[in-house]
Design a protein around this nucleic acid. Structure first.
Length: 418
DNA sequence: TGACGTCAAGATCCG
DNA sequence: CGGATCTTGACGTCA
């Protein structure tokens, strides 16, 4: 049972994926972006392994325009060794990766050119995983596609197009139930015909249910039969509804009590869980820390990343969590995350924000130049009176952290937009 | 024709 | 000029 997240790693400098617009997409520029992106991927892979995160989705933007114009460039040859070496790290670290073409890759389109581009896109995703030397349990997750007013025909078209795919592509494919058109029942039928496994997405099923009698666990059990040995462990997507946004929108974070309620029902099953959530690796670490005892040190490391974010919302919670972690013979993971979640639900009062910024300034007050000190004081004076002032001061502190390579702050969650 | 989702790039505004 | 903030891009379907 492993837990992971998709694409983007928060508070991990050097892991950003760059892109460009079509009009700037020269071969030279693309090759330079790809080189940058592969370094970023390597940084994220190393971070995941170091932190015991064993499930990770690689961004489809790794190679900008990878299935269209970049397929004519030499990136595969130029970066062959780099890709191979990242793949070796993934295998050695026990990381299971996947990729996920978006809603715009439509294999079952009646428009032949759209379907043709979908095949090229699947080829592109396969090429990346193949060139890293990864076996077929490293999956490509796909949506069924459009309905076009006739779901039966749409499914039949999907199945027949699937069967025409190259084996290298077909053996990586996984089908996911979506939040608008094809529910889990329809996806299961299609997947049995197409002979590909099914990833069950709980939030998509909540928004677009097949029936109201079956539970998440019922569907997960039904999907398990679609996973064969060469596919690796069954995978599911887990997400929670955003409390303010429209149905299907992912929550900011994974709320731990609700997750554990879900998780306990699966605890006897071998399943990998991909979290789909705004705060990405932050929630992955939270959930991993709560389903196994990783030692008080792991919680202290987490507290170090959260502390200023808690302080600017609730000085009381800040003190309470410090108190909670004082007894080194305990492992109060769930209690700690509950308190963090509660404090993060509170608004940031200007006075508290100024106080937190003052704490963080402690990392720079001895090394900052005179102009930097003046700038900080001036921003602090404004921060007390306006909301944008609070953001300005955090941006300024982020710049200083980058300039002075303050790893403690750069690895923490405080400096980044929440 | 615009909304949908995503998030960096690109453009523009501001002090 | 640098930094903050707004708009565009790239994809296909559907109302």
């Amino acid at each position: 049972m492993s837990i992971g997240y998709a694409c983007h790693s928060i508070a991990l400098p050097g892991s950003d994926i760059k892109s460009c617009t079509l009009k700037n997409a020269t071969e030279e520029h693309l090759l330079s972006l790809i080189g940058h992106n592969l370094n970023s991927l390597e940084t994220a892979v190393d971070y995941n392994i170091r932190n015991g995160i064993r499930i990770y989705r690689i961004s489809s933007d790794l190679i900008p325009f990878g299935s269209s114009i970049a397929s004519g460039t030499s990136w595969q040859r130029v970066y062959a060794a780099k890709l191979k070496s990242i793949g070796e790290r993934i295998i050695a670290g026990g990381l299971r990766v996947s990729m996920h073409p978006g809603q715009y890759t439509v294999l079952n389109s009646p428009d032949a050119s759209v379907a043709e581009r979908a095949v090229l896109d699947l080829d592109y995703h396969t090429t990346i995983l193949d060139s890293m030397g990864l076996a077929s349990e490293h999956k490509i997750v796909l949506h069924l596609g459009g309905a076009y007013g006739n779901k039966k025909q749409a499914i039949a078209r999907f199945v027949s197009r699937c069967k025409e795919l190259a084996l290298a592509v077909h053996s990586r494919l996984v089908l996911e139930n979506d939040d608008t058109l094809f529910n889990i029942q329809e996806v299961l039928e299609a997947a049995y015909s197409a002979e590909i496994p099914v990833v069950y997405d709980n939030l998509h099923n909540a928004v677009n249910p097949a029936d109201t009698d079956s539970t998440d666990i019922d569907w997960i059990r039904r999907c398990s039969g679609t996973w064969r040995k060469r596919d690796g462990l069954q995978k599911i997507h887990y997400a929670q509804q955003h409390s303010q946004k429209k149905p299907g929108a992912h929550s900011e974070t994974i709320y731990i009590d609700r997750f554990l309620e879900f998780y306990r029902q699966l605890s006897d099953r071998d399943i990998d869980i991909m979290l789909e959530v705004k705060d990405k690796n932050i929630s992955a670490l939270k959930c991993i820390n709560c389903v196994s005892n990783r030692g008080i040190n792991a919680l202290e490391a987490e507290w170090a990343r959260y502390k200023y974010g808690v302080l600017e919302r609730s000085p009381n919670a800040y003190q309470a969590i410090r108190q909670l972690l004082r007894n080194k013979s305990t492992y109060p993971a769930v209690e700690m995350y509950r308190m963090i979640e509660k404090s993060y639900s509170m608004p940031i009062a200007a006075g508290n924000a100024v106080n937190a910024a003052q704490h963080v300034w402690g990392y720079f007050k001895d090394k900052a130049s005179e102009p930097e000190k003046k700038q900080f004081q001036s921003l602090m004076a404004k921060a007390g009176s306006s909301e944008s002032g609070v953001l300005s001061i955090k941006n300024y502190l982020l710049r200083l952290a980058l300039k002075y390579h303050e790893a403690y702050l750069l690895n923490g969650y405080y400096l980044y937009k929440s």
